[in-house]
Nucleic acid binder design. Structure first.
Lengths: 109, 109
DNA sequence: CCCAGATGCTACGGTTTTGATAGCAAGTGT
DNA sequence: ACACTTGCTATCAAAACCGTAGCATCTGGG
């Protein structure tokens, strides 16, 4: 896995360690936002999640899940199902305004 | 420029045209979130913006600015300075909760 | 027990994105 | 005229991403 961004440490594109920069690095990777989004309904298996994500390639899905786990946003239970941690759920909540914005984008853009 | 995501049309990773999916595609490209963030203080020239963004390569910066313009989030004035449109400012506002979340990430993660 | 099908992933190779560096054309100041 | 800045493009290399195949494990019959 190519270096997981965490707050308090330098990340791709910023050496300051500012948390928002770590978030930008993490979320600026393809599929990351989408995966977080699709995890909102609770625990889900690898293949089911893959389908929810429009058949994302298993390579990338697995990489992203690893990053999200390392970042403390996702866990995997005994049955191998993936789900959001409390922290992950908070992030999902923080993305709600984004959805609202996107809906407005249609009309204005 | 490789296909700018817009709401209402298929994008990378989703054919539904759902606005949030277009947003995920756009924001899931490297540097996009950061650039929006650094534009918050008003009009800024290309090279100054480049420096704000930790010396992002001009190739990518220019590509991203083009995408953001096509998406209606950024404009360029007569003096070539780049700035957020009203829509862009709304998006920036919608990202505020993300910053707040990131600050909490430090403590919990 | 044996087989078929499902599940969680990993290996591999090719394509696309991203990036570093150099540098040009136009504008500014002196 | 001259140096310097600014906005950006060209070129090539590195990294990320993707599609496909397939292996190992598990589950549910029969």
């Amino acid at each position: 896995m190519p270096e997981v961004p965490l707050p308090g440490r330098p990340v791709r594109g910023s050496t300051t360690g500012r948390p928002i920069m770590a978030a930008f690095d993490l979320l600026g990777r393809r599929w990351t936002l989408r995966i977080l989004w699709e995890l909102r309904e609770g625990p889900i298996g690898f293949r089911a999640l893959q389908q929810q994500c429009d058949d994302i390639s298993p390579t990338v899905l697995n990489t992203r899940l690893g990053e999200l786990r390392a970042a403390g946003l996702v866990t995997q239970d005994d049955a191998k199902a993936h789900q959001l941690t409390p922290l992950g759920r908070e992030l999902h909540a923080a993305l709600k305004p984004l959805q609202k914005w996107a809906d407005g984008w249609v009309r204005e853009g």
